[in-house]
Write a protein that binds this DNA or RNA. Structure first.
Lengths: 90, 90, 90, 90
DNA sequence: GTGGTCTAGACCACC
DNA sequence: GTGGTCTAGACCACG
């Protein structure tokens, strides 16, 4: 749960990695709602747009899904064609 | 080359559609450099972030490719696996 | 800057009247930005929806115009120009 | 607020000296935001790279600190706290 | 001078 | 109260 402001890697990618790692190490259960975007702003100390860009990455990678007005939840990676997605994308 | 500010469709999607249409109707040639992001801001009357979001859509759809520091160019749609991309994405 | 919760008149109309009166008595100058919607919620002690309905009234009456992402401004009642950029939806 | 193009001293050092002097003579208050990089380009009549090198000097000397997306501010020389959020790269 | 990242807000749509 | 769109800037990295 930490990012390095002196690291030249964009903050949004650091945040995405941080959350991705938490998901992969099963810190969350599938379907669990993670912190809201404004809470993430505060805990990481960045602006809302930066958080949104980070979450957008993880939604593209199928780690998360967002339901407008309700929150952001952890997806079931095993049930997704995540590998195909990444092969095409990368 | 026009968007409707009263249309509830997000501006960035209207702009993406507008540029996509210009590409599909062969207004541009493959590899041609389109207007810079700041020029697009002015011609559409929106902010930079909105233009970036619109271009990002078209890059994902393989209509455009961006070379940092150089500009944004029209991709060759026929040489891409564009249909596969869209089937998975949609 | 006051509304009466015991008055049977809907709160949103009371708020609209209150703001309209401030405009007509020239408390604001033309083009001046008024308080944000969330600030109005707090100062009137009502919900966001109520504030939006009140502002919607004044936009329809051409007392105010809203620019997405920028704020809500006082219109020039005498010059009914086309300053409404986006239809408000309550 | 003046540099001498005929002086053999590099322009970026002249500009750094000029700004440093303004800070030391308390033309600015601690925490005050100075002119943006593009404004400095115009007022000194030099390129962006030159301004960045000048600011980089002053950041290293702890006269200034830069906050990405916000601006460049005057540091408190007496309190060498850890306010540099991102390493500057020229 | 391009595109890339980031800020600190605003208003909008939905639950 | 959530997430979604948008603004008007800032500085950063690259060519």
């Amino acid at each position: 749960m930490s990012i390095d402001f002196e690291n030249p890697t964009p903050l949004y990618l650091q945040i995405a990695s941080d959350i991705r790692e938490q998901i992969e190490t099963n810190t969350f259960t599938v379907g669990e709602k993670i912190a809201s975007q404004s809470e993430l702003c505060q805990s990481y100390g960045v602006s809302l747009m930066t958080v949104k860009k980070a979450l957008s990455e993880l939604v593209n990678e199928k780690y998360l899904y967002i339901r407008t007005g309700k929150g952001t939840c952890v997806a079931d990676i095993n049930k997704q064609s995540n590998l195909i997605w990444r092969r095409i994308k990368v």
